[in-house]
């Protein structure tokens, strides 16, 4: 087992920042390639006539998920050392809903808005100001409103295999099947809407 390389001490904090920039470049590149630098394209996801968000996101999840499984299986990567988001159901449900509403109103999410700024979208620059303002308000009101709900239903490191009582490999397979089902549905819906528009 040699990976995660950083956690086994193969390089230090300073070098990890160089890695951060390199990984960010890859991240930004593919976001832009996919068309995520455009709010009209992103928002179209919520009106079913362009399902690119779903396709790109689930393909990325499936790719990384399968990769994690295989690297763990081969004994290259220690999966217990990969940080996994802790589960806080209440804050994730509330935050997720607010974020979804913000997404369809604003047309971006934080990552894609950065890409859109880099390609010169003025609405994305306003959006980023909005995000910064939102975070500032959150921080200012943290102890008054948000702190009490943040730790409600804290469950720690819970993975889907734990919840479903299935093996990790089987859950990966089920997610792959689900994703491909979603892709077939997405292609079908897109085609339907194009035909309707064509009339």
């Amino acid at each position: 087992m040699i990976a995660p390389l950083f956690k086994f001490g193969y390089f230090g904090d300073e070098f990890s920042l160089i890695i951060a920039v390199l990984i960010g470049i890859g991240f930004g590149f593919f976001l832009e390639r996919a068309g995520f630098g455009s709010s009209t394209k992103l928002a179209a996801q919520f009106y079913f006539y362009d399902m690119t968000v779903l396709k790109v996101m689930f393909t990325a999840i499936v790719t990384a998920m399968v990769g994690l499984l295989y690297f763990g299986w081969l004994g290259i990567l220690d999966l217990t050392l990969v940080s996994v988001n802790q589960t806080y159901l209440v804050s994730q449900i509330v935050g997720g809903l607010i974020l979804g509403v913000g997404f369809v109103i604003g047309g971006y999410c934080p990552g894609t808005s950065v890409v859109a700024c880099a390609t010169g979208k003025k609405d994305a620059m306003v959006f980023v100001l909005g995000v910064l303002f939102g975070i500032f308000v959150f921080g200012e009101l943290y102890s008054y409103i948000f702190e009490p709900i943040m730790d409600l239903s804290a469950m720690g490191r819970v993975l889907l295999p734990d919840v479903l009582h299935l093996s990790y490999g089987l859950v990966v397979f089920l997610v792959v099947v689900m994703a491909i089902g979603a892709f077939i549905l997405a292609e079908y819906v897109e085609k339907k809407l194009v035909l309707k528009k064509g009339k």
């Binding site: 499984l69 217990t80 990790y168 990966v172």
Partner: peptide, 19 residues
């Protein structure tokens, strides 16, 4: 993807693997 997923079932839970 389906093929890799199917083979992946054999991996079981690689967390406990000592490979």
């Amino acid at each position: 993807a389906i093929l890799l997923g199917l083979i992946g079932i054999l991996a079981g839970s690689p967390n406990e693997s000592s490979a």
